[in-house]
């Protein structure tokens, strides 16, 4: 059982799924997981989250989603919900919420607002910290 922290700074489809897949695997292995969303990542923990592939690949998001569905991976919100059911902890960066125009009421349920100092405390207490984009 380990404590794992992740930082997500981008809001695209790939950067949205990777931490959730890692987190769900870790939580299913008995780990305590904390994910901190900053900058463009912040919108991934809002009710309006609908991540698309980056750049021109954006057009292929639906196709990707379909392929993932075929191997048992649900859409973004389903995967997010699964992570919460597995006990993964989600945090939104307080400063970038302001920059990105995200209000507390826009956040998905049980997403906590956190500052850098509080997150760093979690990170130094962790066995691993992963930075996702």
């Amino acid at each position: 059982m380990a404590k794992i922290c992740m930082v997500v700074s981008e809001g695209t489809f790939d950067k949205a799924y990777m931490p959730l897949i890692m987190a769900n695997t870790a939580a299913a292995s008995g780990d305590e997981v904390h994910i901190f969303y900053s900058f463009f990542g912040t919108k991934l923990v809002t009710k309006k989250a609908n991540p698309k592939l980056p750049g021109m690949f954006r057009l292929f998001t639906g196709m990707f989603q379909k392929k993932m569905k075929a191997v048992g991976i649900g859409n973004y919100m389903e995967t997010f919900k699964q992570a919460q059911e597995l006990g993964v902890n989600f945090y939104a960066c307080s400063t970038t919420m302001d920059l990105m125009g995200v209000k507390k009421e826009d956040l998905l349920p049980n997403v906590k607002v956190l500052g850098a100092a509080a997150f760093l405390k979690l990170a130094v207490e962790s066995e691993a910290t992963l930075f996702i984009g």
């Binding site: 890692m22 695997t25 299913a28 075929a70 991976i73």
Partner: peptide, 15 residues
Amino acid sequence: KGLMCPMPIVQLAKK
């Protein structure tokens, strides 16, 4: 069968 990472592990943990 037919499921890919991380779903086999997630379902295994549940089972």
